[in-house]
């Protein structure tokens, strides 16, 4: 009886340990801060279930570099190569932080070049992103075969976007799976800032009112708390702490913009088999606040690429 009891307890311990390990942060997402990490041996499965239920997982999803670039294009913006981080800068980035930020930045630039069918730039920026991924030790994120495939399909924008999406997923899944969520977060932050930087630089102040791109920039206020939350899940890492300080400065400016949204009404459109989320929004960004935002974004982005 005692032996059986010990075996059962041991087995239960193993199950609990495996659950805790398997449910750990390595597999993506962040643990909710409320979770108590103290390990106790519960008496029965019901208690195990209760503990699991409390172990909520939180994902903070920033727009990916590809989505950021797509948003710029959908706003009707023009392509301007001078706004991209030059590929010649790749050798400047030797720390994990600078490589992670610039992996995101180069991936955003690559996406931007892809959407505007800048064939030579696509290859150049894929190589720059590869250099950053290699530097971070991300295995098989961007292989030579990927570059070859890109070259073979250089005039097929659909395949190019597929490749860009795939390489970015390879990088961030590798980082998440290998216990490097801080690096994964910094990559996303780099891409997000690059998209915002390019957008702010492309706004023509003579056409400020009613400018679609300005609307897109205002929309980024909706992501600032997600960004902070993403970084705070790796708080304590000096590189991340520095970024939190910079993002908080940007938040101060974003907080000057008011966004008022009416309640969302889902309506199903049978012809397209799609739900339309209807709502009206009002915003109030002045040109002065925009210039302040643009300056702050520029300063932060330039600190990433220097």
């Amino acid at each position: 009886m005692n032996r059986n009891h010990r075996m059962c307890s041991g087995l239960l311990m193993v199950v609990i340990m495996s659950t805790i390990i398997l449910a750990g942060c390595k597999s993506g997402g962040n643990k909710a801060p409320k979770e108590d990490l103290t390990v106790e041996v519960p008496k029965d499965n019901a208690t195990v279930y209760e503990d699991i239920k409390q172990a909520e997982r939180i994902f903070n999803a920033l727009p990916s570099p590809l989505e950021s670039a797509m948003l710029i294009k959908s706003a009707g913006a023009r392509f301007d190569e001078s706004l991209l981080n030059p590929v010649g800068s790749v050798n400047k980035y030797v720390t994990n932080k600078s490589m992670a930020l610039n992996l995101g930045i180069y991936t955003c630039d690559l996406s931007f070049a892809s959407l505007y069918e800048q064939t030579q730039l696509i290859i150049d920026y894929m190589n720059a992103a590869k250099k950053m991924a290699d530097g971070l030790g991300i295995l098989k994120a961007i292989e030579q075969s990927t570059i070859d495939r890109l070259e073979e399909n250089i005039n097929n924008s659909e395949v190019i976007m597929e490749i860009v999406s795939e390489t970015f997923m390879n990088s961030n899944s590798y980082l998440e799976d290998n216990g490097q969520p801080a690096i994964a977060a910094m990559t996303l932050v780099g891409g997000w800032f690059e998209g915002l930087y390019i957008s702010t630089q492309l706004v023509d102040m003579k056409e400020f009112n009613g400018n679609k791109l300005v609307g897109r920039i205002i929309d980024q206020k909706l992501s600032i708390d997600i960004l902070i939350s993403l970084l705070e899940s790796s708080k304590g890492d000096p590189a991340v702490d520095e970024l939190i300080g910079q993002v908080n400065k940007l938040k101060v400016v974003f907080d000057k913009i008011k966004i008022t949204t009416s309640p969302v009404r889902p309506e199903f459109d049978q012809s397209s088999n799609t739900t339309v989320l209807k709502s009206e929004v009002q915003t109030d960004m002045t040109p002065e606040v925009f210039l302040e935002l643009s300056k702050t974004v520029g300063e932060i982005r330039n600190s990433f690429v220097k």
């Binding site: 449910a23 597999s27 909520e56 997982r57 920033l62 990916s64 590809l66 860009v164 970015f168 997600i226």
Partner: peptide, 19 residues
């Protein structure tokens, strides 16, 4: 696909949230 990766091992009854 946007290129972001969100996947995790979840257990019966477990919840995850995404923003």
């Amino acid at each position: 696909h946007d290129g972001n990766y969100h996947a995790a091992v979840l257990v019966e009854g477990e919840e995850a949230e995404l923003y």
